[in-house]
Nucleic acid binder design. Structure first.
Lengths: 117, 117
DNA sequence: ACTATTTATTCTACATTTACGAAAAAACCA
DNA sequence: TGGTTTTTTCGTAAATGTAGAATAAATAGT
């Protein structure tokens, strides 16, 4: 599908935006991504996903005015929209549903364990 | 990430392969995808995902010899490998974990309902 | 007010994944 | 053998994912 579909990375960013609420922005998301998944992405990668997510209507943003803290450009704070919430909820349900439909046999004995005998 | 990362579509195909066990192949997967998700993908899209999944080691395949049925090229039957099982299990855990970490407030009042007053 | 420093976003370029439809291949049947 | 059926393979286009350098905005010190 195209245009409205949620990519794998995009979904992660969308989820992380929720987790970080109400302080989700490029840099904090990048940090949290690494903390939670060990996966480190360039800041540019995060931002391009954020832009696409906003274009698709799954996220909205607002500039945070003078924070009274250290220097630096104003943060662009992101939060999930109703459409975004629906998207991740559906994605989650679909995947969990499919997972539950997999017959025992299909995964039987599939593991990385070794048996010494 | 590259090479070993599981794309959104790929994950769906991997799951569907499990659901269809032991009769998962290009055409049956395409059919099941539409049944389960309403999403219809071209057969070519399915196959390219299948090829990638096999290259990544998440799926294995074997040609089904003379089926004694109608004509047609032999089906290439796919099944999940141990690595594939691990991949979808981890993906599922990560997403569910993140979902559970989203504070109530972040999704509060976000829905498509309309209230007549 | 000016400059250096800090923090974050934007921009540019490229790699990988997803999507499609046409063409090719293999098996069966008359 | 020729035609039909079923499914895979191939070539190309579009969307998504990745990266890092360049740019911008705010603060603090002088």
């Amino acid at each position: 599908m195209k245009g409205t579909q949620l990519g794998e990375f995009e979904e992660l960013i969308l989820l992380l935006t929720g987790v970080l609420y109400p302080d989700a922005y490029g840099v904090s998301i990048a940090r949290e991504l690494e903390n939670q998944t060990g996966r480190k992405a360039a800041i540019g990668a995060i931002h391009s996903a954020l832009v696409r997510l906003e274009e698709k209507g799954f996220l909205k943003s607002e500039l945070q005015s003078g924070s009274g803290k250290r220097g630096g450009r104003p943060k662009k704070i992101f939060s999930i929209t109703a459409a975004g919430k629906t998207a991740i909820a559906k994605s989650k349900e679909l995947r969990n549903s499919l997972w539950d439909q997999i017959p025992e046999l299909a995964l039987k004995g599939l593991n990385y364990s070794y048996v010494i005998r």
